[in-house]
Amino acid sequence: MLAFASMTTGAVSAATPARVVSLNLCTDEYLLLTARPGQIASISRLGADEQESPLARQARGLATNSGQLSEVIEQRPDLVLTMGHDPQGVALAARLRIRLIALPYPTSPAAVVAQVQQVAALVGNTPAGTTFAARVAALTASAPKAQPGLMIGGSGLAPAMDGLAAGWLRLAGIAQQQGGQISLERLLVQPPPILIRNVYRRGQLSGPQAWSQHPALRQLRVTQVEADGRAFLCGGAAMPAEIARLRKALAT
């Protein structure tokens, strides 16, 4: 179904593409997980940044782009992957007869699995998609009984209770209690049994960072576990490893 949901342009070739480009952090991660060595012409610069993606190490030595289709034309890609609504990019790709696939934002772990399998099939490496699907299936089968908890990021923003992040958290044994903006006062007075702190760009100070370092938050006497905010940016290909890590952290 996702194959129909994604937008495809240009001449479709059944042959395995030799030069694949990704313009988006989330499709970067799919590509790094599924493509064979030498098949990636470039990924976005975010995908190669260790502060943005846990898979960035796998991107060492790869060419990067700024996420604009016009920049990668000279790389003569057989296939361009991106994510989200990009009508201008789709129209430009159609004019240039470049095969561009714009995947929709996934809303559940199952949708992520389907997208990884789709990308794996596109790059001619179906087993990589099967392996990922099997890994998520194993995590789902072994998921601990969900207990109430709260994942919260800088500035007190919590992911939606029925969203993608909450779906992955359930596989770690956490049922997201609430979503949206949560004040530090409410958090202190009604603390969740388990607090998952979504840590992103720890080394750089910003408003959200200052919030997450608030002394009151540090005093909260509940189980506190840190999540790798980079993995939750996309909630995609890097999530199985992050869920396994979270399970270990919650068990100790």
Binding site: Q51, E52, G154, S155, R201, S206, G207, P208, L233
Partner: peptide, 16 residues
């Protein structure tokens, strides 16, 4: 450094 850092900066500049 990233689109997410941009949101942080924009919210910070709004004052709170």
């Amino acid at each position: 450094p990233s689109p997410f850092a941009l949101y942080d900066l924009m919210f910070w500049l709004m004052g709170s």
